[in-house]
């Protein structure tokens, strides 16, 4: 965490106030912090939505197809509001589409958990369990953020995420406590995803000022509560809470896995091939 250079920093600007008049280095630095934080939350939701979209037309049943599409669209909605806000905070004229489609891989701040391939249904459900448990705690806490826009996004998203978590729980229970094969595959999926859980609680990238000002939530403080949501589901599903070495991570600093480039290529290609195209 970085200590602020002056002892009494001015209050953080919220809801996208733009800097005006004489340059104000402290205000610019605060805007940059808020931009980075908002972008991290937005990119988690955006990239997860893109992976969820892969399932459309591929889910095991029509009903599940719609369920996963709904979940992906909820996440996309969160991402859109957050990206628009990030663009406003930045004050450089970038909108939600510019941030989603015209940034390069190193400028994305999402965790590795959400960016990897999830074309195995068990993996998709294991990941949704971890990610929505995290989002449930994060948005729950963010509802009282001193930043009114972040608090507003969180207030709306918390209900959506509760449903995502329930959906993941239903499937983890049924597959974990199902047939011998489904049990084994669900455990394997959980083991694979668990390595990426810890990155969510990393707070090295986050500026302490934002947390102290009540704008951001320190991710590390959510760890116990997130695990308390996940572990009972794992146990009830007759699965074992994995003991695996955490992956290296680095998403919050713009370092991504090989699969991120392919995801972005697919997500961004239309906008980049036809700049300014409209329906």
């Amino acid at each position: 965490m970085i200590t602020p250079p002056d002892s009494s920093p001015p209050p953080l600007r919220s809801s996208g106030e733009q800097s005006r008049g004489a340059p104000d280095p402290a205000a610019d630095r605060q805007a940059k912090q808020l931009f980075d934080y908002t972008l991290a939350l937005a990119d988690d939701a955006l990239v997860s939505a893109q992976r969820m979209g892969w399932w459309i037309s591929r889910a095991p049943q029509l009903e599940e197809d719609l369920a996963l599409a709904n979940i992906g669209l909820d996440q996309l909605g969160q991402a859109r509001t957050l990206l628009a806000y990030a663009g406003q905070v930045e004050g450089a004229g970038r909108g939600e589409d510019d941030l989603a489609y015209l940034r390069d891989e190193r400028d994305f701040r999402n965790v590795h958990l959400v960016e990897r391939d999830q074309s195995d249904f068990g993996v998709a459900m294991a990941r949704l369990l971890l990610f929505s448990a995290w989002q449930a705690e994060l948005y729950g806490a963010l509802r009282t953020s001193t930043d009114t826009t972040l608090a507003g996004v969180a207030g709306k998203a918390v209900k959506e995420v509760a449903y995502h978590l329930d959906h993941a729980r239903q499937w983890v229970l049924r597959l974990g406590d199902g047939t011998e094969e489904s049990h084994e595959r669900m455990q394997a999926a959980l083991d694979a995803e668990w390595r990426y859980l810890l990155e969510l609680f990393d707070n090295d990238w986050l500026d302490g000022d934002l947390v102290e000002a009540g704008v951001a939530i320190d991710p590390a403080r959510l760890c116990d509560a997130v695990l308390a949501r996940i572990e009972p589901v794992v146990t009830e599903a007759t699965l074992v809470v994995p003991e695996v070495a955490p992956a290296i991570g680095g998403g919050r600093r713009g370092l991504h896995t090989e699969q991120m480039g392919y995801l972005l290529a697919e997500m961004q290609h239309l906008t980049r091939s036809h700049p300014g195209a409209t329906w």
């Binding site: 049943q61 029509l62 009903e63 599940e64 719609l66 369920a67 709904n70 329930d166 959906h167 239903q170 049924r174």
Partner: peptide, 20 residues
Amino acid sequence: SLHAPDAEMALRNARDVYTR
């Protein structure tokens, strides 16, 4: 109508298919 493995999932599928 819809398909579902059990009542709990049927209720959830109904939410997703018929109350979007």
